[in-house]
Structures are given as C-alpha cells and as structure tokens.
C-alpha cells in the first residue's frame, strides 16, 4: 500500500505562514483556488488553514541544535521562547515565529554526550574486562562509523576465537580483531588507545606494509 500523509496546521494568516515556511525552512509553497495554501519539503506536507486560534507546532530534529537555532534566530520574525534544555536523552529548544508557528528544535544525545558504552552485539561469551576495553577503545572511531565498527570488530573477534577452537572471546582475539577491522592509517591511534587501556599494544602491532 502506498500513501502520503499531510498534516493540517491552523494559523491567523496562511499567506504569511507560507512565506515563513518558504524563507526560513526552505519549504516549497503553493496556493490553489479552493484549497488554499500548502507547503512541502519532500518529507512533510502541510495544509495551512486560517484560524484565530493558532495550532501549529513543528518539531525540527537536528544534529547541531545550537548552530541551527542561531541560524533560525537570525530571521527577524523568529524568537526564542526557551533556552536550550537538556532532557534525559535529548536537547530541546522552543522558538516562536511572528506568524504563529511554534518550532521545537531537538537533538538526540549521542553515546558520547551521555557517556555511555553501548553493548557489543555478541553471540559468544566474552571476557568481561576485554569487553569493556573494546567498548572504550572504539571511542577512537568517529561517531557516525562507530556502530559499524562495533559490529565488525565483534564479529571478527568471535570468528577468530572459534577459528582457534575457543568458544569464549579473550583479549587476544578482541585486540587482533580491532587491528584487522581498523583502517591502516588509524593504527597508531588504535595502538595508543590500547596502551591507554593498559594493553601491551606491541603484541598486536603490525609491521609497516602488512
């Protein structure tokens, strides 16, 4: 089944709101006789209705709340209603436009923001201390690539363990796996992270060219 969903918003002046959506949030707007104003940006469609009691609240999920908030506040008709607030798993700030549309800017907090060490997607039992080492060492991987690195290093470590006839992942397999799945230019950083964890990285260091 294929379908499209449109949200209805109610504002005092639909034309002014359409103009705000186009200028500030890069919506494409359209006016049709008999239907009135509408706006869409490829993912969201809004039907803009006239009402003396505005009911229009848009949540904008962003990666850099502070930067995006600054950008929006540069527009003369946008004003902050609250400071940036920290909730358990996200940051949030409320803005309002002169045309009556409320904006909620939100940013999900990352594992680094929350100082969390997500579980490894394991299939075998792991030595508890080794698992913590790996979780911390993986912080050298940029956040956008970390989930993939976590999966790859876990799979590789378990494969190495089984290959050697073991059914439990020890430090040797885990560190070897990290070396195997890490790009060569990042090896120095990886070895340093191992040393920071108190692991003798020289055991796993590969000579240049390998």
């Amino acid at each position: 089944m294929y379908f499209a969903i449109a949200s209805h918003i109610f504002v005092p002046d639909p034309k002014q709101s359409a103009s705000f959506l186009a200028e500030c949030l890069a919506f494409r707007t359209q006016y049709k006789d008999g239907y009135g104003w509408s706006a869409e940006n490829g993912t969201v469609s809004l039907l803009i209705h006239s009402s003396e009691q505005p009911q229009a609240s848009l949540e904008i999920q962003c990666n850099h709340l502070e930067r995006d908030s600054q950008a929006l506040l540069k527009h003369a008709d946008v004003h902050a209603v609250s400071d940036i607030e920290k909730h358990p798993r996200r940051l949030e700030q409320r803005l309002i436009s002169d045309c009556g549309i409320s904006l909620i800017l939100s940013q999900m907090l990352t594992e680094d923001d929350l100082n969390e060490l997500p579980d490894l997607p394991t299939s075998l039992p792991w030595d508890e201390q080794t698992m913590q080492h790996v979780q911390r060492i993986l912080r050298i991987v940029p956040l956008d690539f970390r989930a993939k690195a976590r999966q790859q290093s876990t799979e590789r470590a378990e494969y190495l363990a089984v290959e050697q006839g073991d059914l439990m992942v020890s430090e040797t397999y885990a560190m070897q796996a990290l070396v195997d799945v890490t790009l060569k230019f990042q090896h120095p950083t990886l070895y340093q992270a191992m040393r920071d964890e108190g692991i003798a990285s020289e055991v796993y260091e590969r000579p240049c060219g390998n």
């Binding site: 299939s123 075998l124 378990e158 494969y159 089984v162 290959e163 006839g165």
Partner: peptide
Amino acid sequence: KVKLPWFPLLQQ
C-alpha cells in the same frame, strides 16, 4: 538459540 561461524568449525 546460538549463533556460530560455520566455516572454522568445518575446517577444524
């Protein structure tokens, strides 16, 4: 309810 890599087990 277990997952294991097959090829190393075949090799061994």
